[in-house]
Nucleic acid binder design. Structure first.
Lengths: 344, 344
DNA sequence: CTGAAAGCGCTTACAG
DNA sequence: CTGAAAGCGCTTACAG
């Protein structure tokens, strides 16, 4: 039978065993660092394997070890959202770095909605395609949580808390982020603080809503919250609505950077000067916040580290090690040109 | 031996064979749509498999069929760049959609540089981890091209032409994009058109440089080109340099949206009004271009379709079908508020 | 048209 | 400390 593709040969453990004059089992033991092999034998085998450029056949290893050596990330985000959320790319980088350092590969699937996500998760499980999964964009009553529990599919939630069941989770900076923003605005004298939020379907929106309400009440301030689908047009519409109200806000908090920039544009159209007449804050910091004029005050956090932490936790879970406790990601408010004191 | 994880059982073809009263071979034939099975037998097997919720074990199939069912994409981009290039997320979406529709999974690896990319490619090949790869961000004399040729690793280049060897490629909109932008600016009376370009290491930069030079010469216009690393700060620096020149440009073309926005900020700092005193164009269109003030004239193209087309071509290559010829991606200039006629 | 068997390249108890 | 063997769950010639 002709080989479909030529090119260099790929040695197998049988080749290594033959060249080293040992059995395949010994080669496997040496290559996997298992005990039960004399040091000289181990060294000889390793030398032969290195010289031959041996690498394990992933499929063979996965089949016999019942481990795929891969983790999955199914994303129910329309491509449009994905493309303009630096958050996701950074998260991906952080996860990727951690996994590839351990030769674990990442299965990425971008799907349309939560239902498609559930289908992807089940297929991965059924095909033994991944050893575990990362769940992002946690929803209120997220169906994936009972699903992975029922399938006994190891999982870690990037986000939370709320509806996380028995699945380990890593909350973002929702609580401290909102707190820091409100503190900043209140210190500047703002008492009417509105917010252009994300979708109510997401668990993080609920956390932010609750914390904002609490923080405003404590400060004797007030404000309205308008949900959106995170798009710039929804952000612009919400801004128009808020600025057209009888009692106009003196500050608006946006749940992402792109909506904040869109809000800036709307204010400019309406002849409302930022920050003199209106303070604008983006919850998520990004280069966008630095680059627009006026530059945007925002909450900075290390999203790559966040992703790395979650990936590490998943690996801990897979190896049977204890998973670190859920702690909020540290965050720091970066004051820029879009916030100022309320005019007297 | 205790099973490490319980949860629902995953049936194998042995289970299906038993329940259907046939051999494992027949099950395999039925499930793969191979001829050589009576229609009633096939139907019965398929019904049993569907009822049992059977899904192929990926590793077993990969091992016996010598196909991994996965394609690879190794990205040598620092995370920082990645995060702010909507281009990449869109490309990923397009590729993903095409692959997952055919149950092919995508291996994504984000690495630091071209060398690490070569290491990743070789490992994927050695581990039989992927059936083929997509190469993006083609460089001048890209080392990956001879590498995949030598390894006989099926590959498709997203970008080009130039140094593509025998590997099929899909050029972007470099030629027509630059042409359309120059036409637009020349029609507005501009004769001094500078450009804040990307890195000279990339093949697309060279294409754009050459086409720009040609187009300017034809129009009797002139301009300088400054290379950058695509970051906003580099874009800002280049803008400062160009605007400080004795013969100031009346228009600047930026190779990406984030640098264009940074350039806008610099012009504003210098008290140069866009578009009255300076026209600004972004080569890549994005929501960012729509959202900033003034909104940015840019070249729009369907990046998702582009990614899908490349993914399709790779699948064609893997299946031994003819690969469609290299054709430039269609593009269309979107005039917005950042370009205007040269003041008299 | 169908079945029995070998083989893909590993891992892992089990003997010696 | 080392080897021979079974097995992971598929695919694929090869007999009947």
């Amino acid at each position: 039978m002709p080989r479909r593709q030529l090119g260099p040969r790929r040695p197998t453990i049988a080749d290594i065993a033959e060249r080293a004059g040992v059995s395949k089992g010994s080669v496997s033991y040496a290559l996997n660092g298992n005990p039960g092999l004399s040091e000289p034998t181990r060294q000889r085998i390793l030398a032969v394997a290195a010289e031959a450029g041996w690498q394990p056949n992933r499929a063979a290893r996965a089949l016999s070890a019942s481990r795929s050596g891969a983790c999955g990330l199914a994303l129910a985000r329309p491509a449009r959202t994905l493309a303009y959320e630096p958050f996701f790319s950074k998260l991906l980088s952080g996860i990727e770095a951690e996994l590839s350092a351990r030769q674990i590969s990442l299965m990425l699937q971008i799907v349309e909605d939560v239902e498609a996500e559930a289908v992807a998760l089940r297929r991965w499980w059924a095909e033994r395609h991944v050893d575990g999964v990362l769940l992002v964009d946690l929803r209120v009553d997220d169906p994936r949580v009972p699903q992975v529990e029922q399938l006994h599919l190891p999982a870690v939630i990037v986000g939370g808390p709320g509806a996380t069941g028995t699945v380990p989770y890593f909350p973002g900076n929702d609580t401290s982020g909102i707190r820091q923003i409100v503190d900043h605005l209140v210190a500047l004298g703002h008492t009417r603080i509105d917010r252009v939020a994300g979708s109510n379907a997401f668990a993080c929106t609920k956390v932010r809503n609750d914390v904002l309400e609490e923080a405003l009440a404590e400060a004797g301030a007030s404000g309205r919250v308008l949900p959106t689908d995170y798009t710039s047009s929804a952000g612009a519409d919400a801004t128009r609505k808020l600025l057209a109200a009888k009692r106009r806000p003196t500050a608006i908090i946006y749940d992402n950077d792109i909506m904040a920039v869109a809000g800036l544009g709307v204010a400019q159209e309406l002849g409302i000067v930022v920050p003199n007449e209106l303070s604008v804050v983006s919850f998520d910091d990004s280069i966008l916040c630095e680059v627009v004029r006026p530059s945007l005050t925002a909450c900075a956090r290390d999203v790559e580290a966040y992703g790395a932490r979650a990936a590490c936790a998943l690996l801990d879970l897979l190896e049977g090690r204890p998973v670190p406790p859920a702690e909020e990601e540290p965050t720091a408010l970066v004051p820029r040109a879009s916030t100022a004191a309320v005019p007297a």
